[in-house]
Each structure stands twice: as structure tokens, then as C-alpha cells.
Design a binder for these strands. Structure first.
Lengths: 150, 150
DNA sequence: CTTGATTAGTACGATATCGTACTATATGGG
DNA sequence: CCCATATAGTACGATATCGTACTAATCAAG
């Protein structure tokens, strides 16, 4: 039994790893040169959730090292898509604000992706996505909590 | 509707990306220093499927660039866990063979992971895993086919 | 057999991500 | 107020992964 359980989860994480690579390649092929999935994801998060987040909050949301988020944000700032301003409530911290260019970029990117997503939806249906999404969220939360614990 | 579909798939791929990072960190924390998830995954694949695979076959199986697989295999070879021998059927190619140390390493690694997997299984049940695994496989195959097509 | 196109593997440079170390600020206890 | 600890962000080096370019071998067509 333990063997079977291990094998099951290894296969699960293996599939997840492969899908992650495929989706990243798919996204980045549609983004302008130099723009990465990480950039788009941050912009999207700032709209979906709320801008004015701090770099550390963003790093936690995406489960990347804070140095990685610094790097990603510097790219977004250099591209003129976000504005970094000091956090008035904490002198150590900054807040990340979307500007008009950032919002436009995100909207354009989504428009670019839309046909791709529509195609995908014909083979991997929204119903299928809706089945696994909550399970993946649950798995993410469990693993996140486990990580924090240790 | 298109907006909803796009948002659904963005969230899906976002969750997949986060789980991938969390699982990689989880695995690598349990592996000996210098050993990565990619190394373990290749060893595991050589046992699960069959050894004697070529580097290109492995690269395709994991959806990584062939240069990446060359790098991973050179690490495994340097660690003495696999043997690379010429492919008698194709002078351009090599075949990757597990040796005793590689099998032992893989078995040890699985033994190391087992408690972690057992713990995880208490919160994210094998039934849940069994629900999403076939869907993820389907998604992987669809995206893989789509990639090859273009 | 020859030649052009394809494929396997590698060398090399670019870079995204990570971990460590550092500075600056904040916070809590005396 | 001071000091110890914790946290936010960055600098820096290491490296895993990728893309491009190259060599060698195979294959297909004539």
C-alpha cells in the first residue's frame, strides 16, 4: 500500500511538472520578447486581487523566493508596466502599483491568449478544468501549510 | 463567456505552477545535497518505464530541452548512478542504463519520501489524487499534441 | 554512390531562480 | 530610551534551464 501511494503521488507531481512546463512555453510564445509568464502572472494578480501589494506579499502568493520577486518586479518596472512606491506604513517596504501601460499590457496579453484558450477548451473542457481546479487549490494550500510548519 | 474561460484556465495554470514549485522544494529538501528532482525523476522513469532509453527520448518524456537532459544525465553519470553507452542501432545516439548504485539511490529516495507522502495522503487523499491524475494526464497529452502541431 | 535534409548529442552563452549575506527599518521587553 | 529579534528589500554568486549553433550520423531520393 505505501508503495502504491508513493507511486501515485510521484506520478501526480510528475504530470504537474510537465503541464507546468508546457503551459509556460505556451504562454511565453505568445508574449512579447523578454516578457515571461512570471511577469504576466504578477500583472494579472495585481488586477485579480488588488494592486498596492508589497513584493513580499507577491513572493508568498506565487511561492517564489523574495529575491526572485525583486528580479521580476524590476523587469516590470523597467518595462514601465508597474510603479514602485514606498510603503507609507512601513519604511522597510514598498508597494507595487499598476499603471495604465501595465493594465493595457495585461489586457492585450489576455486577448492574445484567448484564441489559444478557446482551442484548448475544445479538447480539455471547462468542466474538466472546474473539476480539478478546486482539488489543486486544496493541494496547494495543504502543501503551503506543510511548508510553513517545518 | 470567453473572459470566464480565460480566467478559469489562467487560474488553473497558476495553481499548477505553484504546486510544481512546492513539490520540487519538498522533494529536494529530502534528497542528498546536489541531487535535484530532475535527477530523481529520470531514475524513477528508467525504472518505471524501462532503462536503455536515449537522452532525446527522456527529454521528450519530461518535456525539457535536450540540452537540459544532457546536463541532467551528466550529473547522474558523474554521481555514478547511470551508465551511458553507445546505441548500437544508431551511431549518433546513446542509451542510458541504470546501474546498481542508481537503483539503490532511487529506492533510498523513495524510502525517504514515504513518510512525507503518507502525511500528505492524510490531508490530500489518494482518492483526490486519483480523481485529478487522469485529468492532468489528459491535459498533458492535449497540450503536448498541440505543441507538436505548431 | 552522392547529395540534401533530418536527427542525436554537445558546446556555449543568456538568464530566471535560488540561497546567503547584508542594510535598513520595525517591534517588543526591559 | 535601548537593545535584541524579526522583517523588507537588495547585492551577489551559483546553477538549472533554455535557445542557438555546431558536428556527426542517418535517411531518402535520385
Amino acid at each position: 500500500m505505501p508503495d502504491d501511494i508513493g507511486a501515485l503521488y510521484f506520478r501526480l507531481f510528475n504530470e504537474i511538472g510537465i503541464v507546468e512546463q508546457l503551459s509556460r512555453a505556451l504562454f511565453e510564445a505568445r508574449l512579447p520578447d523578454g516578457m515571461l509568464t512570471s511577469h504576466f502572472s504578477v500583472l494579472n494578480h495585481l488586477i485579480r486581487v488588488k494592486d498596492g501589494r508589497t513584493p513580499v506579499e507577491l513572493a508568498r502568493a506565487f511561492q517564489v523566493a523574495k529575491t526572485t520577486m525583486t528580479h521580476t518586479l524590476s523587469g516590470l518596472e523597467a518595462a514601465g508596466l508597474v510603479d514602485m512606491r514606498p510603503n507609507e506604513q512601513d519604511g522597510r517596504s514598498k508597494r507595487v502599483w499598476l499603471n495604465a501601460a501595465g493594465r493595457a499590457f495585461r489586457d492585450d496579453a489576455i486577448a492574445m491568449m484567448a484564441p489559444e484558450m478557446q482551442d484548448l477548451a475544445r479538447e480539455f473542457t471547462p468542466e474538466q478544468a472546474a473539476i480539478i481546479l478546486p482539488e489543486l487549490e486544496a493541494l496547494r494550500k495543504i502543501m503551503d501549510a506543510r511548508r510553513s510548519r517545518s
